[in-house]
């Protein structure tokens, strides 16, 4: 009997406590609210130029490359990029941009895409180099040429072009420019 009384009292206390909590919630404004954009978002992936992480970064460094801010990438990765370049092409001297291995890998290690605001925007169109990236640009063949092609772009012809020169769907001339999905 006594024990039951204690139990009842405990339940009453619990109920009043949770009821109080419930009513406390009502202090927050209710009614229509917009989407919730609060919180902290932590970096997982990043990208500037095409294929940099995939070609130049060793497997054990790939996550680290994605979470190193661009202004710190050169110090962290340039020498590793140079070693990777010389592993891919042991005969590398300079490329079609006349860049030696430290210059080329120094440019690539800071993985940002430079975009012209005053003229043609292309990764490479035969005339303009690294002034943006348009949808139809054959960026992989450009990079292969710079890695394997040597100073005249004529070395290692079997490695300097993947022989896929265009997309499988035509792009649009107007926004949103990308082709409809398959």
């Amino acid at each position: 009997m006594k024990f039951n009384n204690i139990k009842l009292a405990a339940i009453a206390l619990l109920v009043s406590f949770s009821a109080y909590n419930c009513s406390d919630d009502d202090d927050t404004p209710t009614g229509p609210t917009g989407p919730n954009f609060t919180g902290t978002y932590a970096q997982e992936d990043q990208m500037g130029r095409p294929a940099i992480n995939t070609v130049f970064v060793d497997m054990e460094d790939k996550d680290a490359f994605n979470t190193t801010i661009p202004s710190n990438q050169n110090a962290a990765f340039q020498s590793k990029f140079e070693a990777k370049l010389l592993a891919l092409n042991p005969g590398y001297t300079t490329n079609a941009l006349t860049w030696d291995a430290p210059t080329f890998t120094g440019a690539l290690a800071t993985d940002v895409l430079t975009v012209s605001l005053t003229g043609t925007t292309t990764f490479f169109d035969g005339t303009n180099v690294l002034t943006g990236r348009a949808l139809a640009d054959d960026v992989i063949s450009t990079e292969l040429l710079l890695i394997f092609g040597g100073p005249m772009g004529t070395d290692n012809p079997g490695l300097s072009d993947d022989n896929v020169d265009s997309n499988d769907k035509a792009f649009l001339t107007s926004f949103p420019y990308l082709a409809t999905p398959h």
Partner: peptide, 22 residues
């Protein structure tokens, strides 16, 4: 290009495949 480029993001919803600027 950057598809499935690193173990932490490969195949997930935060995996960037490409960026373009023109």
């Amino acid at each position: 290009a950057d598809h499935i480029d690193a173990p932490a993001v490969a195949g997930g919803t935060s995996d960037i495949t490409d960026i373009y600027a023109f």
